[in-house]
Design a protein around this nucleic acid. Structure first.
Length: 114
RNA sequence: UGGGUCGGCCGGGCGAUCGCGUCACCGAGGGGCAACCUGAGGUGCCGAGGAAAGUCCGGGCUCCACAGGGCAAGGCGGUGGGUAACACCCACCCGGGGCAACCCGCGGGACAGUGCCACAGAAAAUAGACCGCCACUCCUCCGGGAGCGGUAAGGGUGAAACGGUGGUGCAAGAGACCACCAGCGUUGCGGGUGACCGCAGCGGCUAGGUAAACCCCACCUGGAGCAAGGUCAAGAGAAUCACUCGCUCGCGAGUGGUGCGUGCACGUUCGAGGGCGGCCCGCCCGAGUGCACGGGUAGACCGCAGGAGGCGGCUGGCAACAGCCGCCGUAGAUGGAUGAUCGCCCCCGCUCACGCGGGACAGAACCCGGCUUACAGGUCGACCCAUUCG
RNA sequence: GCCCCGGUAUCCCAACCGGUAGAGGAAGCGGUCUCAAACACCGUCCAGUGUGGGUUCGAAUCCCACCCGGGGCA
């Protein structure tokens, strides 16, 4: 689980990250990364739409993502705002695959930042 | 033993570690003369459901409203009871289904009125008469035909045709008459709180369906909703007023107050507008209101979890349920807390086995009572039918 | 939280105070025209009304429950 300080809670920043940020997609996930200096620490937010499934499925996906993101916080390319968006296929994917997709996306973000 | 009917309960279990959230306690450090405030971090407890779901009903709670009358609108619909209330529950009545346990029923009124009943059929509703049957009159090529009456037994149509069966009767027929049956109205007696039931008598012989068509009758119903509502902050460039100061004399700066701004329309006792659930009357409040455009804010706390609460026992009641006593204390988020890893056991599938894979439906958002819908599997109880044995 | 609307041929839609589904347009197919095509004209094909149940003699229509899609307000 992510500590509260690392959670993205402002809808304005969500909007900015999705609109202006660098994008990296994988099978189940789409990552948006926006470097930012006016945050104390990097913040991560999640978007899981109704297309993914019912409330139980959406909650499970969101919780698994929050858990995985916590373990990979150090792999972020610097300081900024990350938005993780789940595709409908995320509902059928196992936790291991979800982690693989997350690492893959983070790697692409880093290579693009350089 | 086999088949079936009904009802209740559970909804993987135990343990370990790392996280997350509420609460309680401890608390490095920081601020302050102090009271105290803040607080990294740590420890402990607790942390989704039977449907949390759909949002279909009913309440609690909060705010607004709370002279009255009339008319509309919506809901409900056998009877009696339960309940805070209900469209829910229980018991019973009536109708239908089943050998039975039991199940199903939006189950008031069609002599208050109106509408509709396609096609077919002669006719679809205070009846009427196509084919037919029969009498009489006339004509005749003796097969029959025409006219005028009687009749509704038979024919065929239809979802439905103005009681059914048998007889008497008749020119042919007909509740015209008779017997039985079905049904309607009514009277009396008996039973039941009641819906209603039973028995006996009388009447006229017969009345179509549809109210989940309008409608009539009885009963019920203020409006919103926790983003309700309350407290406190923050913001307020622009607008405007007062005072002071400066000077290039109509602008600028500062302080304080008021306080969203602009445009248009209608208004201040000749009453705009609002309220009384909708409309009309009537009553009340009343100096601003309505529309358009532009701008600002969207933070914290309370509400917020002890409630028609759960479990057990006793009493009353056929039951739903109620009363009394004892015990228990059980989520409270706000981008929204339940995730991850591992061990043992349980269930299912595959497999000779080792082992491998899987674990239904589904996530609290103010709180309850119901209804409806989804659901792997397990478990308990009552009853019915058939068969065998005793 | 509260509240609306819709679902009919492949598509867009009629029929909605009940009478046995098509009035129409587009697309498709066949033909006429053309060297060929487009356009135009003619003809033709196409469903049981989102699902289940009920009321009725009869339901796309009325009633109830559910499913799906779309929208509004705070």
């Amino acid at each position: 689980m992510l500590p509260r300080s690392a959670r993205l809670t402002e809808s304005e920043r969500f909007r900015l990250a999705v609109r202006r940020g660098t994008r990296a997609g994988s099978r189940a996930l789409v990552l948006h990364w926006l470097p930012s200096d006016d945050v104390d620490a990097s913040q991560v937010g999640f978007v899981v739409s109704k297309a993914v499934g019912n409330a139980v499925v959406r909650n499970r996906v969101k919780r698994q993502l929050r858990h995985l993101t916590r373990e990979h916080l150090t792999e972020l390319p610097g300081r900024g705002v990350l938005v993780v968006r789940a595709n409908p296929s995320a509902a059928r994917v196992s936790r291991v695959d979800l982690e693989r997709d997350l690492v893959l996306g983070l790697g692409r973000l880093r290579s693009r930042g350089e």
